[in-house]
Amino acid sequence: MSGPTVLFVGGLGRSGSTLLELLLTAGADVCAVGEVVHLWERGLVGGECCGCGAPFRECPFWTAVGDRAFGGWAALDAPTVLGLKAAVDRTRHLPWLAARRLPRVRTATVARYTGLYQRIYAAAADVTGARLVVDSSKHASLAFALRWAADLDLRVLHLVRDAPAVAHSWGRRVRRPEITDRVAYMPVLSPARASGRWLAQNAAFDLLARRLPVHRLRYEDFVAAPDAALAGVRAFAGLPPVAPDGPPTAPHSIAGNPLRFRTGPLTVRRDDTWREDYTGRRRWTVAASTWPLRLRYGYLGRTPDEERR
């Protein structure tokens, strides 16, 4: 299998990556596989539902990917894979992952871990015939690890959304429909923790941009002019700016926003409910702690009406 071009969507969750990947799949040359970083625990171990609605091990797409990549998912030892993940894909490992030279003692472990992703990407492209595979894992540590993968055509899209809007979303209680045997909810973060993660993840992708080309896209600009934004993303990924071939197709994702289970036409609209709901001390906590990067990304010094344009 030859390796495809991989678009890695990075940033902090609740920034619109699911909507973006859904719209990208309107092109037949794009295959979106969701947040592959969670496949091991949520798919391989937990058996959670794919974006198509089928349990992971019953999904025809993921069955075909597992067969092509590994000779079947049974060939993988889940504890071993999760051990590799813990040894490589953690925010605490960013200092050595971001170094100009990978420490020799880490080389083999990083190669084994990133090799798993390369096999999945190649298999997904082989199964679908896509030229571009979209992985919306978002974790900066995984993006930095993939940077060291040999012969991987990696393109990184840094998707950023204004911090108060993201913190507001992280404060909401949202049910996870991919878990069918019990009621489970997506994690909830306090304003302080959401702010800390927003700063850490976005700053990490700013650092990654010093190591390889990174295309930054603001959520607010994306929803204001989706066609232009999608054309820019396709161009960055090396694809022609062709018109969509049809409606978005549900990505075969094993994690992400519940929006991935939606079928049919999508209406792109900006969600500004946080402006009315997220007020007082919570909003000021986020605004005060994240202002340096908010200034860098152009969120300060503009009125709400100007931001909506």
Rank of each mutant, 00 (worst) to 15 (best):
S2F: 06
V6A: 03
G10M: 09
G10W: 01
L22H: 10
D29E: 15
A32W: 02
A32F: 01
V37L: 12
L39R: 08
E41L: 14
E41H: 14
G46F: 12
G47N: 09
C50F: 01
C50P: 04
A54G: 05
F56I: 11
C59Q: 14
P60K: 13
T63S: 15
D67V: 07
T80E: 15
T80V: 13
V81D: 06
L82W: 09
L84C: 07
A86C: 06
V88F: 11
D89I: 10
R92N: 02
H93M: 06
L94K: 03
W96Y: 05
A98W: 04
L102F: 03
L102A: 03
V105G: 08
V105K: 08
T107R: 14
T107G: 07
A108K: 09
R112Q: 12
R112A: 15
Y113V: 05
T114E: 09
L116K: 06
L116G: 11
R119N: 07
R131M: 02
F144L: 14
R147G: 13
D153M: 07
L154D: 09
L159Q: 03
V160I: 09
R161N: 04
A163S: 00
A163N: 10
P164I: 00
A165R: 02
V166T: 01
A167S: 02
A167L: 04
R173A: 10
R173S: 04
R173W: 01
V174P: 07
R175H: 08
T180M: 00
D181L: 03
D181M: 03
D181Y: 07
Y185I: 00
P187I: 00
W198Q: 00
A200G: 07
A200R: 15
F205M: 08
D206R: 15
D206M: 10
R211E: 06
L212D: 03
V214N: 05
H215R: 14
R218T: 09
F222A: 00
D227T: 10
A228P: 00
A231E: 12
G232R: 00
V233Y: 02
A235I: 01
A237I: 02
P240S: 08
P241K: 06
A243Y: 04
P247H: 06
T249M: 05
A250L: 14
A250R: 15
A250P: 12
H252K: 07
S253Y: 01
I254R: 11
I254C: 12
A255Q: 12
R260W: 10
R269G: 13
D272L: 14
R275E: 15
E276G: 13
D277V: 11
D277G: 00
T279E: 15
R281S: 13
R283P: 01
W284H: 13
W284N: 07
W284Y: 03
A287K: 14
S289D: 09
T290K: 02
R294S: 11
L295F: 11
G298I: 02
R302K: 15
T303C: 05
P304F: 10
